[in-house]
Design a protein around this nucleic acid. Structure first.
Length: 735
DNA sequence: TTAGGGTTAG
């Protein structure tokens, strides 16, 4: 019955002079499927009239409406009415009660009704089991299934309820058992059940990462609908097989546009985003517009996310502004888009707007927002975010804890990261990796290694990312032998094939540790063709160890590959400058300019009482600028007495020595620290963040500063943390 | 029965 038919049914009902209970039941039944709120309203008017009396057909349909509305309160009332009418033990009424209670996660009530039933048919069992499965209660679902088998054989509905739960838990062997059972018990060629069970099966296989089985089920299905196609396209996306996902999507379109739905387009758009194929994404946008689906909320959110991931944040914002209906997902997608595009402050603006519009943030919103605090290294903002997740009651969610661990580590509070890690109720692989990486950037290689060993004791299998974090932690702490050992163990003991990222880490480990030739040999022996990032790691170490010859050789490799970003140009230019070869340094900068790479200016910032103060080199825009410069000059006088001499090799330009010293003295990190010295009391640690790597001369000056101003200073640069205290730095001068 | 936003490394 279509919506128009519902009005007609109501019209006909209103024509009946004294409608009997059968007339009421017919209309409530029609409403319960397509207008559950209307069904409840009609039932209430029937109760007010007192006559006719509801019967054993009325209650199940009313309860079905409650179930559709997830209206537990009304369900409880209807339960009382049915009990007073002596119908609560009726098979249909009881089954409807079990269904509504279980759907509303009121398992105690559902189980009581279920237990008291004089007899249970397969529908009653399915209602109980589907409720458990819907709410992810794995062991209750399986227990229910085992009990059920003593009474009734599971049917197609049982399997359709069970399979998504198995998919969610990655329970492949149980899923295969269900597959075998389904072949015997219900016909996969059946028009209705076959599509449902087949689709649920292929979805289960895809979510367990077994696309071969998923495809086999798909091929074997006699009838497929849009959901079947969507499930398979989504499965390929989930498993990272983007090209195949897209090709499948095209096959689907070739079958006729009747299969095009926001769901399937959403998966295809995700494939475009992951492939960074903006052109395909735009074509899909046009396709959606052509078929009138672009105004759909799911489709709109998918488009918004695709543009944001492609870096077109302005386009994503325009799309967002044009959306008539926006939900939590729309706001979260935009927040995450801004964070991913390095605009943390804009992300906060969107978040505030979301709150002003009364759209409730959820776990995903907060998980997107918390990294914005890490990017700004704004501890106070981060702590506010932490407070906010506590207030919302989601602070113990694993993904929230993971984001907080990362945020505190990147804001310099590795102690708070560990506290969260220790108390969180459940840890996943990301939790372990994040904590190991956190130790890494703080130069705490031993702690990282100890945590890795803990992880093994707690039977958590490391993955490829674990080893990237671990090797990088060893590299930051100069633990070369240990890092090499992990690299070998990864392949030989854990069977993980090294990816480019592992090779980058190994080159960094060897070269940073001073084994430049070994690093070079290592690259030569790689089974993969080394990319710019691998050579870039070696070039970075050439700068630290001032090895000009190898630096030149490496830079020519990089030139051949295309320098990809500004970092390598800057490194090369620095190497020439450090050797006093200014002409060549200038030449590199000219090439850099010609090729359109702009060096981002060094910028440092410090958070004082929740506000951020940012500085660039030689910057005089700050309100307290004159005091800051005066303080820096005073510091220079004091540290000169202790024997400091400026290392002018860190100045890029070929200028007079005195000028060079000035250029060095007013580097952004020094300005930010001087401001910290002026505004924070002596017992407070000065915490400064820099967008690039900290300059070598600044590194020396900061060590002296801790002596002459008796301060603890932490600098987070683009690579890692430097904890300065008593004239020393935690990085051991290798970074 | 499918689907939109999210956390780790480089």
């Amino acid at each position: 019955m279509a919506c128009g038919d519902l009005s007609l049914a109501r019209h006909l009902f209103d024509q009946i002079p004294a409608p009997g209970i059968h007339d009421y039941n017919a209309l409530i039944r029609a409403y319960s499927l397509r207008g559950p709120a209307l069904a409840l309203r009609l039932y209430r008017s029937l109760r007010r009239r007192r006559l006719p009396q509801p019967n054993n057909y009325t209650f199940p349909f009313v309860l079905k409406a409650c179930s559709a509305l997830l209206d537990l309160r009304s369900a409880r009332a209807v339960h009382c009415h049915a009990a007073r009418a002596g119908l609560h033990a009726d098979l249909f009424v009881s089954t409807a009660l079990v269904d509504v209670y279980a759907k509303c996660a009121s398992f105690r009530h559902a189980a009581t009704v279920f237990r008291r039933m004089p007899a249970r048919d397969v529908v009653a069992w399915n209602a109980m089991l589907a409720g458990y499965a819907l709410h992810g209660k794995y062991s209750d679902t399986i227990a229910c299934l085992l009990l059920m088998q003593d009474d009734h054989a599971p049917n197609a509905s049982t399997l359709v309820a069970l399979l998504p739960l198995l998919a969610q838990h990655g329970a492949l062997s149980q899923g295969r058992a269900v597959h075998a059972y389904s072949v015997r018990a219900c016909s996969l060629h059946d028009h209705k059940d076959g599509v449902l069970v087949g689709t649920a099966l292929l979805d289960m296989y895809a979510k367990c990462g077994h696309l071969v089985y998923a495809s086999r089920v798909f091929e074997a299905m006699a009838v497929r609908n849009e959901v079947t196609w969507s499930a398979l396209v989504g499965g390929f996306v989930l498993c990272g097989r983007m090209l195949e996902a897209f090709s499948l999507f095209k096959d689907m379109l070739a079958q006729g546009l009747c299969f095009l739905s926001p769901t399937s387009v959403a998966s295809a758009l995700r494939a475009c985003a992951n492939l960074s194929d903006l052109c395909l994404g735009k074509q899909l946008h046009a396709l959606l517009a052509k078929s009138g689906l672009h105004t759909d909320l799911t489709a709109g959110n998918s488009l918004l996310s695709m543009y944001a991931k492609a870096g077109l944040i302005d386009q994503a914002t325009t799309l967002f502004d044009q959306m008539v209906v926006k939900d939590t997902v729309s706001y979260s997608a935009l927040v995450s888009g801004y964070v991913q595009n390095g605009k943390a402050d804009e992300a906060f603006r969107v978040f505030r707007k979301m709150q002003a519009c009364n759209v409730q943030p959820d776990v995903a919103t907060m998980v997107s927002l918390i990294p914005a605090c890490s990017h700004l290294a704004a501890l106070q903002h981060g702590k506010c975010g932490h407070g906010s997740v506590i207030v919302r009651g989601i602070a113990s969610e694993t993904s929230i804890c993971n984001a907080l661990i990362d945020m505190y580590a990147k804001c310099g509070r590795i102690d708070l990261s560990r506290q969260i890690f220790d108390v969180m109720p459940a840890r996943d692989i990301v939790s372990w990796n994040t904590m190991i990486a956190g130790y890494g950037i703080h130069g705490l290689g031993k702690e990282a290694t100890a945590l890795f060993l803990d992880m093994k004791h707690q039977a958590c299998e490391p993955d490829d990312v674990t080893f990237i974090c671990l090797i990088s932690a060893c590299s930051h702490s100069g633990l070369v032998t240990e890092g090499k050992r992990w690299f070998h163990m990864m392949a030989h003991k854990y069977g993980i094939t090294p990816r480019m990222e592992h090779y980058i880490g190994m080159v960094d480990l060897l070269a940073r540790g001073g084994f430049l030739d070994e690093a070079y040999q290592f690259i030569q022996g790689m089974p993969l063709k080394a990319d710019v990032r691998v050579w870039g790691a070696l070039l970075g170490a050439c700068r630290v160890h001032k090895n000009i010859d190898l630096g030149k050789q490496v830079s020519s490799m990089i030139q051949q590959l295309g320098p990809e970003g500004t970092g390598n140009f800057v490194l090369l230019s620095n190497i020439f400058s450090a050797a006093g070869r200014f002409d060549e340094a200038a030449e590199v900068r000219i090439i850099q300019k010609e090729q359109g790479f702009k060096k981002s200016p060094g910028c440092s910032w410090i958070e004082i009482n929740g506000s951020l103060h940012a500085f660039i080199g030689g910057d005089r825009s700050h309100a307290q600028s004159s005091e800051i410069y005066q303080e820096l000059d005073n510091i220079l006088v004091d540290i000169n007495k202790l024997g400091y001499r400026a290392d002018t090799s860190f100045v890029l330009q070929d200028v007079e020595e005195e000028e060079k010293e000035k250029a060095l003295l007013y580097h952004s990190e020094k300005l930010a620290i001087a401001f910290g010295v002026l505004t924070l009391s002596e017992d407070k640690t000065i915490f400064v963040t820099k967008n690039l790597r900290v300059c070598g001369d600044c590194h020396t000056v900061i060590k002296y500063m801790t002596l002459v101003r008796k301060r603890a200073i932490i600098v987070r640069d683009a690579n890692r943390f430097h904890h300065f205290k008593n004239g020393q730095c935690s990085c051991g001068d290798f970074w």
